[in-house]
Design a protein around this nucleic acid. Structure first.
Length: 120
DNA sequence: ATGCTGACTATGT
DNA sequence: TACATAGCCAGCA
């Protein structure tokens, strides 16, 4: 049995944790990246890095959210269980915004990491 | 209610 | 540098 994709119902619970995650993701500027843990913390959910990834995994295709700007703490695009497609698209979008990847496929967070100055 | 999973992270070796 | 492990906890069956 292939793992089922958990997707939020067509309309994610507006008052749920996922919405908090999405609200933060929306603030990440183009050309910058944030880590899952960072997004969760900014959403008021420290230690919920996995939830951040979980929430993004459930996004329907075409969602107007810069989900591609969220990567893991190692500076890499996280692999999906469903296949490399999404990860490849993510990297392409980031490079399109000017984010550079090194030979190992990592982004220098010191250079491209988003540093929000308390809300904004 | 219980058990399992995961687009994670910090830590140890 | 890389790999293994434990901790994390919201959803879903």
């Amino acid at each position: 049995m292939p793992p089922r994709v958990r997707r939020p119902a067509a309309a994610p619970d507006p008052s749920g944790s996922w919405s908090r995650i999405y609200a933060v993701v929306r603030r990440i500027p183009a050309g910058r990246v944030a880590t899952y843990g960072q997004v969760a913390a900014l959403a008021g959910l420290p230690r919920h890095a996995r939830l951040a990834g979980y929430a993004l995994a459930g996004l329907p295709d075409g969602t107007p959210l810069p989900w591609h700007r969220v990567i893991n703490a190692a500076g890499q695009v996280s692999a999906r269980r469903e296949g490399p497609g999404g990860a490849v698209l993510q990297r392409l979008r980031l490079e399109q915004e000017g984010v550079r990847f090194d030979a190992r496929g990592r982004v220098d967070l010191e250079t491209f990491g988003w540093r929000p100055r308390r809300r904004s």
